[in-house]
Design a protein around this nucleic acid. Structure first.
Length: 557
RNA sequence: GCGGGAGUAACUCAGUUGGUAGAGUGUCUGCCUUCCAAGCAGAAUGUCGCCGGUUCGAGUCCGGUCUCCCGCUCCA
């Protein structure tokens, strides 16, 4: 049974997990706030990630399934960086997409995605007639066949050719040339022609291409002008790349080496939607893993498997999670391989998944870019992109970012494997996965619907709650004692003496507290308390003095 | 950005032809003392998304705007 996203969103608000940003002013599209429980939950997601990737990492011996031992360290870099970073990384050019709209059907396309088939006619019997572009049809490339020009449109081109040749003595021959809409416009301009490409779907008139800046622009300096434009980072990765040399020079680390960072990133998503899934301000948890080029495929495999497993270890059911290898033509121009870890969010249709994390094999693209300048893919080779004067389009730092391996006396530019996870998306996935409704008996033994969040104990915002069964006979005092002992041990715990015991259990179920500890008459006589399990509803009795140890033990797994 | 739907208490929603707002849940306070929400009693809470217009009077009609949901588009 699919989960109801509306109910999940309602619970998130009702219990203080996630609020719409600036809600009292009507909200702000694409921005979300975390309430008290959501803040703890998301912090747990971040902390568990940091702990598992760095804190608990053992650099002395190879971890399970790893090709070799390796180092993992962290950095924290700024949201605003030198503007040249984004020019070199390609974001400046790529994030400023040219978009065209259809004035008729209102469809919007990326201008470089619209293809135009131009019919160029010539008269083989009459060379003096020259070549002329006489007709065009626009179409969207069909991913399946690679041939998006429909038969009807091809026929129209044929007819145009026939009509063109009608009053000529010799027969025209036509060549169909396919180009992007942007190239088409450039050629029309250059050749002084005025063919008009129309909407690929409805044939309506298209607007001229307009800029869409997907990076947030800002100004540095109180008196800053457009000259001082800077950008909020669209990814945390670049802060790692530009510090690669600093980290190597300062940290007594060797390759293979992972440098990790958690932090906010910003993208002007065109259509923010689906709760927090596509937000304009979001948090990333990224690893840039640097290794020898010859070892990179092994590390790519390692990180894909390890990161896929990580979500499962924290409670995401395997049937809701896929590891999807990108198809070749889906790869970014720099990537030698990318796999997405995707989750079957309730708001997606059956069989569809939303990306939680991308694990990309980036080769030496990033370090080379920051050395040499913005790179482009030319016939499978990454080369520095040049401007009209033959200079680099965007100049690199000129610094040598290669790595010298002392043991092999070899110098090389490391390859990078990038597991890049979304903290908000992971948090949302954990929320969706945790949401459950089951049936539990009420005090009369009738089955009632119970709403609960089955958070993994490491992620649960509240780990335990302590109740007195009744508000008398010294039970509240005893319960508070246990509550404080847990607090002092650094365990997130709540105390509740309000209303019937069953109601208190349900309250904790709804926020995903794994364990409830209840003080009852037997506590007063025998010194034992019950620990009730959220998922099984089972209770076990242990000495009150062992509660802190027992909960700590359970939290360690 | 387009098309469709929606916005009323913290949540889910009702609100008849325009006559100055209700229910359930939740929250809080007592009582009860009982191990899985619905025993009893009581209380608080809304400029009906926002702005403007029509009207003697607008939650209700009109215009604009913001936000959410669905579809399209987009998602290096």
């Amino acid at each position: 049974m699919p989960k109801d996203m509306d109910k999940i969103v309602a619970l998130c608000k009702r219990r203080g997990f996630i609020f719409q940003d600036s809600e009292i002013y009507g909200g702000l599209n694409g921005f979300w706030d975390y309430g008290p429980l959501g803040t703890d939950l998301k912090r747990n997601v971040r902390n568990v990630w940091w702990e598992d990737m760095i804190g608990r990492h053992d650099p002395l011996d190879p971890p399970e399934n790893a090709p070799a031992s390796f180092h993992m360290v962290g950095v924290e870099t700024t949201i605003i960086m030198h503007p040249q970073v984004w020019k070199v990384s390609g974001h400046y050019d790529l994030f400023v997409d040219k978009m065209v709209d259809c004035k008729e059907c209102k469809a919007r396309f990326r201008a470089d995605h619209v293809n135009v088939a131009v019919l160029v006619a010539n008269f083989p019997d009459d060379p003096s007639a020259g070549k002329q572009a006489i007709a065009c049809e626009s179409f969207m490339p069909d991913a399946a066949t690679g041939m998006g020009l429909s038969n009807s449109k091809a026929k129209k081109l044929d007819q145009a050719l026939l009509a063109f040749g009608k009053d000529k003595s010799s027969k025209p021959v036509g060549d169909v040339v396919v180009m992007s809409y942007l190239d088409f416009l450039v050629r029309q301009e250059a050749e002084g022609q005025n063919l008009k490409a129309s909407c690929p779907t409805c044939g309506g008139e298209l607007t001229t291409p307009r800029d869409f800046n997907l990076m947030f622009k800002t100004i540095i300096g109180a008196l800053g002008t457009e000259e001082d434009a800077a950008y909020l980072r669209p990814e945390t990765a670049q802060g790692i790349f530009v510090n690669f040399k600093n980290v190597c020079d300062s940290s007594r680390v060797k390759l293979p080496l992972g440098i990790c960072q958690v932090g906010k990133s910003f993208r002007n998503e065109i259509t923010p939607r689906n709760f927090t899934f596509r937000s304009r301000e979001f948090e990333q948890m990224e690893i840039e893993f640097f290794c020898h080029p010859s070892e990179s495929p092994k590390w790519y495999d390692y990180w894909r498997a390890r990161r896929y497993q990580w979500y499962q270890d924290l409670g995401i059911a395997k049937e809701n999670l896929i590891l999807r290898e990108h198809h070749k033509d889906e790869l970014a121009h720099y990537s030698c391989g990318t796999a997405d870890i995707e989750y079957a969010f309730p708001f997606m249709s059956a069989g569809e998944y939303g990306e939680l994390e991308g694990v990309a094999h980036r080769g030496d693209f990033d370090l080379r870019s920051h050395m040499e300048g913005k790179l482009k893919n030319e016939n499978g080779e990454l080369v520095v992109e040049l401007d009209a004067k033959g200079q680099p389009r965007h100049r690199g730092s000129g610094k040598d970012l290669s790595y010298f391996d002392d043991s092999t006396r070899e110098r090389f530019i490391p390859h990078v494997i990038e597991p890049s996870a979304g903290a908000d998306r992971a948090t949302l996935a954990f929320i969706c996965e945790a949401y459950a409704e089951d049936e539990a008996p009420d005090d009369k033994g009738n089955m009632q619907v119970r709403t609960l969040m089955r958070f993994h104990p490491r992620l649960a915002p509240v780990k335990a709650a302590v109740f007195p069964l009744v508000k008398k006979d010294g039970q509240p005092e005893k319960a508070k004692e246990i509550y404080r002992a847990l607090k002092n041990a650094g365990i997130a715990v709540q105390y509740d003496e309000q209303a019937a015991i069953g109601k208190r259990y349900r309250r904790q179920d709804e926020i995903g507290t794994p364990w409830c500890i209840t003080v009852d008459p037997e506590t007063m006589s025998e010194g034992t308390v019950t620990i009730r399990d959220r998922d099984s509803l089972e209770q076990v009795r242990i000495p009150a003095g062992e509660v802190v140890d027992e909960i700590s033990r359970r939290l360690r797994g």
